[in-house]
């Protein structure tokens, strides 16, 4: 661990802007800047990923690192910044980790198998607003990996469950629901994520408020798929 002093920080600055200031300073001194992931800086792309003072995305709830502002810290504080820690998220450099395991889980079944074109009119199947809203709530996951980072078991169950439930709730997604949940969980396990022990740290630290209900739904989906799917392998 290295400690850097940072000067000239305004309370209105975002956390990442503070790191920008530090990096500019390091550069001017001829040092290499600290690598960290970030992109949209408006809390939606899911690329920023820092473990700040012992918390995924820092001390504020419902906030990504990029939306965290320095007014939540005091002048003179020493702030600890770590990368996400998980076997499935190897560190590339400094604070940058490899989260492609989450992409591979999506590739294992996080889709509805329709080709472009030849689909029915969008209003052919009405979907109750309550269901559509719930599916949307699950779909807001930004795949940042904070759930994994916060989980004592480094489990990606909250992330996985968000996708599984979103698609399982919608009539379009029900068609493949069984194979989807079987394959996605198998991939989750193969990537080396831990198991869920219903601690709830994931949902508490999730910047977009994905609910634990999704994990319950994932479990339901998994049980019913395993009991009734055609897959005997």
């Amino acid at each position: 661990m290295v400690t850097y002093p940072v000067k000239g920080i305004s309370p209105d600055m975002s956390f990442l802007e503070m790191l920008d200031v530090l990096n500019e300073d390091l550069l001017l001194r001829g040092d290499e800047p600290i690598a960290f992931d970030h992109d949209c800086r408006e809390g939606i792309c899911g690329m920023c990923s820092l473990y700040i003072n012992g918390r995924a995305h820092g001390p504020e709830r419902g906030t990504t690192t990029c939306q965290l502002h320095m007014r939540h810290f005091k002048d003179g504080d020493t702030i600890t910044i770590e990368p996400w820690r998980a076997a499935a998220f190897p560190v590339h450099r400094d604070l940058v980790v490899d989260r492609s395991a989450m992409d591979r889980i999506q590739q294992a079944g996080g889709y509805i198998s329709v080709n472009t074109g030849g689909v029915p009119d969008a209003n052919t199947i009405p979907i109750p607003k309550t269901i559509a809203d719930k599916a949307f709530d699950a779909a807001t996951c930004i795949q940042c990996g904070a759930c994994v980072a916060a989980c004592k078991n480094a489990s990606a169950m909250l992330f996985l469950s968000a996708k599984v439930s979103q698609l399982a709730m919608l009539p379009q997604g029900k068609v493949e629901a069984k194979t989807r949940v079987e394959n996605m969980l198998a991939q989750h396990d193969a990537e080396g994520f831990g198991a869920c022990s219903n601690i709830g740290a994931c949902a508490a630290e999730c910047p977009v408020g994905i609910s634990l209900d999704n994990i319950a739904m994932l479990n339901r989906e998994y049980i019913s798929a395993k009991a009734t799917s055609e897959n005997v392998a």
């Binding site: 600890t80 709830g200 740290a201």
Partner: peptide
Amino acid sequence: GYANSHPEENSN
């Protein structure tokens, strides 16, 4: 593991 972690903030 983490050098600095505060799980008490998010779980029992």
